[in-house]
């Protein structure tokens, strides 16, 4: 059964503050991701890779098309779902490791990582235990765990973000350049974690500019330039 199915997706931005200029982003996007597969969105910067991920997560709206996700064994179209349904999908079925961590003042790195489990009703102590294990695996120094990540370096924040995205067993996981600010050791850890997700049957959709990492994790590469909007002359 397909875990994620994107069909005929199209997106434009209308910039009302720039005299209503319409920026076409992507058109007629079609792809599927199966459980246990890591599909990579390829193409140059500005081709719309991040926009596709954001649409699949419900962060950007879509102009047309469908984004069907298996949610507790039922197909749900996220493109037309109401906000409550999108939040339920995010809680249980679709995870997202964004490029940058949005920090909340005063919340510790440990609690940032544990939060997705706590929201799902996992006991706080257990969630923190699993958060500790992940942060240790990602080599984040233990003295940082109790601090809010706002003052962390780029690589440290990214590892907090990765741990937060990987802590749940969501069947669909989106990755926006999760290794961009990591050193070789931690890149290898993330590659291993992605392999484990695949073995566990998770469907992954990601953007990886690092060729090494991409070669190690990608089962297929989708060329996003194929979805470039044809601008009417």
């Amino acid at each position: 059964m397909t875990a994620l199915s994107v069909q005929n997706l199209s997106k434009t931005f209308t910039m009302h503050l720039r005299d209503g200029v319409v920026l076409p982003v992507v058109d007629n996007v079609n792809f599927h991701v199966q459980p246990g597969e890591c599909v990579v969105l390829g193409g140059p910067s500005g081709a719309g890779k991040s926009s596709i991920l954001k649409m699949v997560y419900g962060n950007y709206g879509v102009d047309a098309g469908s984004i069907v996700i298996q949610h507790h064994g039922q197909p749900v179209d996220l493109a037309t779902a109401d906000p409550r349904t999108v939040l339920t999908l995010r809680r249980d079925s679709i995870g997202y490791v964004s490029q940058f961590l949005r920090t909340v003042p005063r919340v510790s790195a440990l609690d940032v990582v544990a939060e997705p489990l706590v929201i799902r009703g996992v006991d706080k102590a257990e969630a923190q235990g699993r958060a500790r294990a992940l942060l240790a695996r990602l080599n984040l120094p233990e003295r940082l765990w109790s601090l809010p990540p706002a003052t962390f370096s780029g690589g440290e924040q990214q590892r907090v973000n990765i741990a937060r995205g990987f802590i749940t067993d969501h069947p669909v996981l989106l990755l926006d350049e999760p290794t961009a600010s990591l050193d070789a050791t931690n890149r290898a850890v993330v590659v291993a974690m992605i392999s484990e997700k695949k073995t566990a049957g998770v469907a992954l959709l990601g953007i990886f500019h690092d060729e090494d990492v991409r070669e190690q994790v990608a089962d297929r590469i989708i060329d996003v330039t194929a979805f470039a909007p044809r601008i009417a002359a």
Binding site: F13, G58, Y60, G61
Partner: peptide, 12 residues
């Protein structure tokens, strides 16, 4: 709509 969608992809 969803808070992050309205803030990150505002339409009006």
């Amino acid at each position: 709509g969803l808070t992050d969608r309205v803030l990150d992809d505002p339409r009006e």
